[in-house]
Design a protein around this nucleic acid. Sequence first.
DNA 1: AATTCTTACGAACGCCGTAATCATC
DNA 2: GATGATTACGGCGTTCGTAAGAATT
Lengths: 114, 114
Amino acid sequence: MAPDGELRGHAELARTGSFSRAAESCHVSQPSLSQQIQKLERGLGQRLFDRVARRAVLTDAGRLLLERAEAILETVEDAKRCLRDAHQGGHLSIGAIPTIAPYLLPSLSAAGGS
Amino acid sequence: MAPDGELRGHAELARTGSFSRAAESCHVSQPSLSQQIQKLERGLGQRLFDRVARRAVLTDAGRLLLERAEAILETVEDAKRCLRDAHQGGHLSIGAIPTIAPYLLPSLSAAGGS
DNA sequence: AATTCTTACGAACGCCGTAATCATC
DNA sequence: GATGATTACGGCGTTCGTAAGAATT
């Protein structure tokens, strides 16, 4: 059960109710998303969506999973954001092309962190 | 970032402090777990563990991730458990070999759910 | 007939495990 | 020299996308 992939697909399909829309929202082909959902359903041993009249509607099991899936996706995003912020906040990365670096960097260092 | 895999590896490595121990705990080879951690670190663009004196100790970033990872793993387990319970609780599955099914099932149906 | 989902299929990518290399105690 | 981690490498499984098929409106 991978947040990047199946769970994302599940959430998008639940939100849009359409394989096509969900697929493009996840930047994968429609058949791919179809496989992802089938894989989930197979892995869990039960249907997550009822395919009815060109629309996909959550089953009870699907709804149950959706709550957890959203929590997981949220936490994953939080982790990435959190780590990224900590990375940039922890130390300052200064970049400059070699040609001007020798002239620029010493004065910046001398000025110290503002 | 997959709960089944990398995040599990991260948590186990954090817990044991040893690639070997964590690997067998995850039922994968040691090199595999090494790759998983490297993949995570590469993907996040920063180290998660300091390799020091044959021990792996969490960096600040690693500690930050660990909190989220544990939450994610917990939620994934909860989802599986929850879905499994709902599956068995929602409707009753009765199995019987064809030979005796015709004799057994009708009487059970007649008795109704207890 | 047109749109949407599923099935089929071939290719590419990723992950695992074994083996070899490196480092540390 | 022995233990533990990383690198190298080959094989297998998974996932993707394109193409074809089935179904519904």
